[in-house]
């Protein structure tokens, strides 16, 4: 089992290094969400005013100036590899989890609305597990992270456009109280 895990992680790292995680079928669009990373689900900007008074008082997970406030990894159609653009986000959360071993997170994988709902549940699961694997590889404990999937069922943007689909192909790293 461990050997398998290492092999998987090796493949993941290769993916992160810029090569594609697997051969994707035709019709692959670029995932370039317009507001990538800014729309962390369930994380409001309520704490923003406090930032000027002293960063020490601000929850780093909610401080918009902190990379930890970014929670989302975006994907191309039918893909699950974490591109270099999103790797620093996952690294930051891995570091945070390492420093907070009692904190648990839920990684929710999402897909766009195209194709089978059940296949999309599985694809979202694979995306979430990709994030989980990277978090664990970078030092988070296995038990700190649950990967699950919402498939295409909870789109952040319900429109039927390429831009909406790009927003919806996404994994979110969610802390307690955020889901």
């Amino acid at each position: 089992m461990r050997v398998v895990l290492i092999a998987v992680l090796g493949a993941l790292l290769a993916a992160c290094a810029g090569t594609s995680g697997r051969q994707a079928p035709a019709a692959v669009e670029e995932a370039r969400p317009g507001a990538a990373g800014t729309a962390a689900q369930g994380v409001g900007g309520q704490g923003v005013q406090g930032a000027a008074l002293g960063a020490g008082a601000l929850d780093p997970l909610k401080d918009p100036a902190n990379i930890l406030s970014k929670r989302s990894v975006y994907y191309a159609f039918d893909r699950y590899d974490i591109t270099s653009e999103y790797r620093p986000i996952v690294e930051a959360h891995a570091k945070y989890l390492r420093a907070h071993p009692d904190t648990r997170v839920l990684v929710q994988g999402n897909t766009d609305e195209r194709g089978s709902r059940e296949y999309n549940v599985a694809l979202g699961q694979r995306r979430a597990e990709g994030v989980k694997s990277m978090l664990v590889l970078l030092g988070a404990q296995e038990g700190q992270v649950e990967a699950t999937s919402l498939g295409e069922e909870k789109p952040r943007d319900p429109a039927h456009t390429e831009a909406a689909w790009a927003q919806n192909r996404r994994s979110d790293i969610l802390y307690p109280g955020e889901y």
Partner: peptide, 25 residues
């Protein structure tokens, strides 16, 4: 993880499902 895609066997005595409890679907 995810628990999904239930299908009944013709005799109704079992279900086939997709689970990710051991990783993957």
């Amino acid at each position: 993880g995810s628990n999904s895609a239930p299908a009944w066997s013709p005799d109704g005595k079992q279900l086939a499902v997709a689970l990710s409890r051991d990783g993957g679907s």
